[in-house]
Amino acid sequence: MRFFLNRIGFLLLSVWAAITVNFLIPRMMPGSPVDAILAHFQSEGAPLGPNALHALEQQFGLSHAPLWTQYFGYVNNLFHGQLGTSITYYPLTVTEVIGRSLPWTLGLAGTATIISVLLGTFLGIYAAWHRGTRIDATLTTVTMFTSAIPYFWIALILVYLFGFELNWFPQLHAFTTLSNGVPWWRFSADVLYHAVLPGATIVISAIGGWLVGMRNNMVQTLGEDYVTFARARGVRDRRLMVFYAARNAILPNLTGFAMAIGFVVGGALLTEVVFSYPGIGMQLLTAVENEDYPLMQGIFLIIALAVLLANFLVELIYGLLDPRVRQGE
């Protein structure tokens, strides 16, 4: 229980920090985003209404009210789900734009991350069990290389090779346009087909960390007395590997995973850009390019909150797996 309260406390604290950072950035940075936004609408010949203008001022601190009043208004808006109006997709609100792109990112990056965690953990256990052999050396060396390579470059090479040269997979986007009226299963197959290359990019880049981390933890636990004692007692190899060595080795790796979710999101974001995948990362770049500050801030906040939530969930799983933590040691 103490553990649970502790984690809730940290979640609340970090959410508050994310909101505050989001509030402070536009006020601390040079230049006025509102000027840029106004100029944008002026040039489009569609001046903003007074309501929208007021909202903008509140969001970006153009008003000369004291900082804490602005802060209060900002937090109040957030709790009502108001993140402002997008400029790029005017008159859509930021919430609506995010609502459209978030599922794509969750689907692609979420699935790819789960695959790479599972695969990396499994291969790490395997490498540790066969430590010192050629398989171990190959796996650790190859993944050491892949995790040192930038995501977007792997993405570019995959697109170039399998998209442009071999034509095995689609080069861009999440699905074929003009797919109106096709049955849902054909649409799903199309989406999966488009997800192969971007998904592979994330798996290739992310798997190395899990593999090496799991392997090294596992090598440590294999040297623990409780593993030797279990072997002495006649516990079978497979059970020894899973319930004694891996079960304990996975705990520190899980903490690493919780902490690294932010990195995964960053990598997924670059991958989306290469593939013009209509997720939240691509949307963030569009927002930056169009100086769509409300959308940009909203996306940053959503990404931050998603990462914090994911971190919280992983910590809870950790608590379930480790009796020492669960009982608040």
Binding site: L13, S14, A17, A18, V21, I25, P26, M29, P30, G31, P33, A258, M259, I261, G262, F263, V265, G266, G267, L269, L270, L284, L285, V288, E291, Y293, M296, Q297, I299, F300, I303, A304, V307, L308, N311
Partner: peptide
């Protein structure tokens, strides 16, 4: 707290300003 705030999105937002 700083550690789990996503780095690259923060970087992107900062560089946009």
């Amino acid at each position: 707290v700083v550690l789990i705030l996503p780095g690259l999105p923060l970087l992107i937002v900062l560089s946009a300003y």
